[in-house]
Amino acid sequence: MSQSDTPVLELRNVTKTYSVKQGLFGKSKPLTAINDVSIKLARGEVLGLVGESGCGKSTLAKILLGLEAPTSGEVLVDGQTLGGQDRLALARRIQPIFQDPYSSLNPRKNIYDIIALPLRVHGIGDEASRQKSVREILDIVGLPARVMNNYPSQMSGGQRQRVAIARALIMKPEIVICDEPTSALDVSVQSQILNLLNELRQEFGLTYLFISHNLAVIEHLATRVAVMYLGRIVEEASVGGLFDAARHPYTDALLKSVLTPEPELGIPDTHLGMSYPNPIAPPEGCHFHPRCPAASDLCKSKRPTPLFDPNGRIECHLHSP
């Protein structure tokens, strides 16, 4: 395994800016959804990505999937830039599982057609062998073969998410980008889906980027965690390191929110008092300083530089070199 030190998936200094119009005659303003983000995904690991709603997690996922082009920076798959990769070849290696199983399945198609779509698009096998593949994958995700003739509207949220997982896995990808795969589900079904994802990862040797706004879910699955705030990765560490000794005050707040009863219900309450800042006009200096209990004058004026050390990374003046 000489190539094991090349990350299977890497973002290098990726920035994504949208231009948003405010009001009918308002001028377009830039909204920086992702701000100079670099992350690496090693083969076989589960990188958890956590942060409040609107911090740029889904945008990051779309860039990794090649659904959105970064404004600057590059995406590398196995050390090669994404631009140089064939769209279909990329699709065979990286597949998504989305948040909302009520929107991720085409309501006009039956389950068989939904799951067989990747095989059809890639021209894999004939109709008979596709039937067989769909049966197999349904069995693997814990659905009976007879659901093939059903439509999404006939199924529950958990069943639909299993269908979405089946569609993502039928081409045996290496990397699966899970964008909050359980946050739209009933609490009772969430752990079933998480367990399934965990089993599948071991069975197929998958690499996951696992996105959530909830650290409790991340702790369940991830091997490493990246914490995102307003388009930046502010802390990165192994799961053990992060949960034992969080270094960034924001991570701290997220951890405390997990301790509140029933954290699965909706957005965690970070007890940060102030609400999430407007991403069109981010605060000066450290983006987090208006909500930070430990903010100093330095934090208000100067953006901290990231510090990389054996524990991971931290972007905070409290931990400046």
């Binding site: 659904l67 699709a91 065979r92 948040q99 929107s103 991720s104 990747p118 698009v121």
Partner: peptide, 26 residues
């Protein structure tokens, strides 16, 4: 904006295919 369109894009489906089999029926 629905996620099944993103899913079809991530599968690598061609634009005509997405328009005809994901968008049009809906």
């Amino acid at each position: 904006g629905r996620e099944y369109v993103s899913a079809a894009q991530a599968i690598g489906a061609s634009t005509p295919r997405i328009l005809l089999s994901e968008i049009m029926p809906n």
